[in-house]
Design a binder for these strands. Structure first.
Lengths: 270, 270
DNA sequence: ACGAAATTGTACGATATGGTTCATTTGGTC
DNA sequence: GACCAAATGAACCATATCGTACAATTTCGT
């Protein structure tokens, strides 16, 4: 597990030109770089713990301006570019040369830090999943009534998807590839289970209080919320094409959001 | 640069006859092809008329066994193999050589009938969309009460998606590519609008009869049904990974199906 | 039966693409 | 200030991948 705190660990240098890419907006969650791993791994080893990064990280206090080497900055820069590329063209569609070209460094560095194209992709994927988990944890629904809590959770989920098309597209891409890379990731495995727990807690509270009807599997609720939040982002392009209905338009989005929350609540109401 | 490959211009042989090829799919689907394309297309022109297929098709009554050439069979065979390949690996992930190898014929034929990889993909995509439209038309919900009609439609949609993961995956792939190919297809454009009309008709009947509450946009209902039907198929792999929940298992599927129908009905009920 | 068009096989070509080799510089340490 | 690992650059390589040229054979209309 990466030491997911230490705010200063990530690229403290001139790279952070705020250029974190337009549509990657909001994606600026800081992920600390993990432990260093040996320079060479055996062929079949699928450790997948967020890439085999060299160590020597830039210490926060260092005089940045005098540096010409910047491991973390380079890493971060590569990841940002790669993420945008993968999101845009998919895993097979993205080109390493293209990614390298859009980077401040060279292709050499991609292989230095991430071993190969898949390693790069995996790291991007892990970061994406880590970010949503992180945000999810900030939710505190205990004080709300069950219906309010569920509505809040649904709204949050809807918003997160709508605001992070990147994440949605990465998940799509991963599914196109049969979630092969998720399977390799020990990091991501025991992750979303927390989402279910959160729902279960709300639901059981609601049943006890008489607000919700009994007999529903929390997983079912989760699926409903996720589906309704995911679909209009993942299928935005085809929806816009087949109908003249662009879900990205704020008005549409707001209407849909209200409808989704309403649908979820109605589905569990006593 | 100099001799940039412009496939259209270079076609040396007598191919590109621009035949209208009305019923390209032979036995199955018929796709009205738009304008026949001229002998040469400009670089940017994306006509997309279901491939430049030669005519001379096998007439049903002919003695097939005496033939050594079989255009329609070859075409069909290529399309079937290609569909499986694209579905499995995506547009960028699929390899023409691989497709050719799994075919009864050669790569040569792929290019003969479909011009290039994208042309092949487009045709596969068009067929997939045509098929669902066809089935959709067989639904006659007029005799049912609005709630029953809506439940039936939701159930049908759910089943269609669950039974046609191929279609779902093609739509995913198309969305990864920003629906670029759908946009090129005049064939698919005015298509699913019928789905909306179907829902509107049911919904208005339901409102008039007092079974449904007023003020809902039929598009909203459609999105809900589609989302709930699509998600567990499109995201089957990641769901199975993150939770231990395989939506493909019959039991799970049946439960989910009932839940989806229930959710849809509750969302519109008065 | 005959010529034109349709159909198909084999081998090949150009370049894109993932990945590597070799060499060099940089920064921290003692 | 010498030494070593980390960090990086530029050119290069092997092969995968899309697509073609060449040429032969099969059908069909007349």
């Amino acid at each position: 597990m990466p030491d997911a705190k230490d705010p200063a660990v990530s690229a403290p240098l001139g790279f952070r030109t705020g250029k974190t890419s337009a549509d990657l907006a909001g994606t600026t969650v800081e992920i600390a770089s993990p432990q260093a791993s040996p320079l060479q791994r055996s062929a079949g080893e699928h450790v997948f713990a967020a890439a085999n990064a060299p160590k020597q990280m830039a210490k926060p206090g260092r005089n940045a301006s005098s540096w010409s080497q910047d491991p973390d900055g380079v890493r971060r820069n590569i990841l940002d570019v790669a993420r945008a590329e993968f999101v845009e063209k998919g895993l097979s569609g993205a080109r390493v040369d293209e990614i390298a070209a859009k980077t401040k460094t060279s292709k050499r560095m991609i292989y230095y830090y991430f071993t190969d194209k898949e390693g790069l992709y995996r790291t991007v994927l892990e970061e994406a999943y880590s970010q949503i988990r992180e945000l999810e944890r900030t939710l505190d629904l205990g004080a709300l009534s069950p219906p309010d809590a569920l509505a809040t959770l649904a709204g949050f989920t809807f918003d997160y998807h709508a605001d992070h098309a990147d994440f949605v597209r990465l998940v799509m891409i991963e599914n196109i590839h049969h979630a092969r890379h998720l399977k390799m990731s020990g990091t991501i495995s025991a992750l979303n289970s927390s989402a279910i727990d959160m729902i279960r807690e709300i639901y059981e509270r609601g049943v006890a209080g008489g607000a919700f009807r009994a007999g529903i599997d929390p997983m079912n609720i989760h699926l409903t919320i996720s589906a309704l939040s995911f679909y209009n982002v993942s299928n935005r392009a085809s929806i816009a094409q087949v109908f003249a209905h662009d879900m990205a338009v704020p008005t549409m989005r707001a209407l849909r959001r209200a409808s989704v929350i309403d649908t979820v609540i109605r589905s569990v109401r006593a």
